[in-house]
Simulated assay, not measured.
Amino acid sequence: MEKPAVLVLKRAVELDVASRFQESLICYQEGIDLLLQALKATKDETKKAHYREKISSYMSRAEDIKKNLEKEREDGKYHKQIKIEENTKGFSYEKLFYDYLNETVTEVWIEDPYIRQVHQLYNFLRFCEMLIKGPCKVKIIHLLTSYDEGSGKNQQISALQEIEQSLKDYGVILDVSYSSSIHDREIRFNNGWMIKIGRGLDFYKKPQGRFCLGYCDFDLRPCHETTVDVFHAKHTKKT
Score class of each variant (00 low, 15 high):
D184S: 12
E23R: 05
E103V: 08
Q29S: 12
I197N: 02
E45K: 13
E86K: 12
Q208A: 09
K40L: 11
N68G: 09
D148Y: 06
D112H: 03
T227F: 07
L15F: 13
V6W: 11
K10Q: 15
F97E: 02
P4C: 06
M194K: 13
A38L: 04
A38H: 05
I115Q: 10
T236I: 13
I82E: 03
K77V: 01
S60N: 09
Q29D: 12
K48H: 10
I187K: 10
E23N: 02
G76D: 04
K83G: 00
L167T: 09
E164V: 03
I195G: 08
E164S: 14
I132L: 04
Q22H: 14
G150Y: 03
K83L: 13
S151A: 15
N154S: 15
A12K: 14
D148K: 09
D44R: 11
L213V: 12
H50G: 06
Y122K: 08
K196D: 00
S56W: 02
D169W: 00
D75H: 09
D175T: 10
V8E: 02
E186I: 15
G171D: 00
V17A: 10
F211A: 04
D217T: 01
K71V: 11
L143F: 00
R199Y: 13
R73I: 08
L144Y: 05
A5P: 01
L35F: 03
L9G: 05
R126H: 06
D33A: 14
D16V: 01
I182H: 05
G214W: 02
A159Y: 14
N102M: 10
A38E: 08
Y93L: 01
E72A: 08
R11K: 15
E164M: 05
Q37M: 12
N154P: 11
G209C: 02
D219L: 07
A12H: 14
C128N: 02
A38M: 01
Y170W: 06
F211V: 13
V118P: 02
I197E: 02
Q117L: 02
T145C: 03
T227Q: 09
H232L: 06
S177R: 14
N102Y: 06
N87V: 06
A159M: 10
I197C: 00
H79Q: 11
V138I: 10
I55G: 05
A41Y: 12
Y78I: 14
E86I: 12
D16F: 10
P4R: 09
L125M: 11
S92C: 00
I26A: 11
E45F: 15
C27D: 10
Y114I: 03
H142V: 07
K40G: 04
E53P: 11
A38V: 09
N102T: 07
S181G: 05
E23D: 14
E70A: 15
S151R: 15
K95Y: 05
Y204F: 13
E164P: 01
E14C: 07
K238N: 05
L69G: 06
S57L: 14
S92L: 01
I26M: 10
E107W: 07
Y100T: 04
I65M: 01
T236S: 12
R199M: 01
E85C: 00
E94F: 03
C27Y: 11
Y204V: 04
T42N: 04
Q120G: 00
F231R: 11
K95V: 10
K66R: 14
V6A: 14
L36H: 03
Y147Q: 07
G150T: 04
K67Q: 13
D75I: 06
S19V: 10
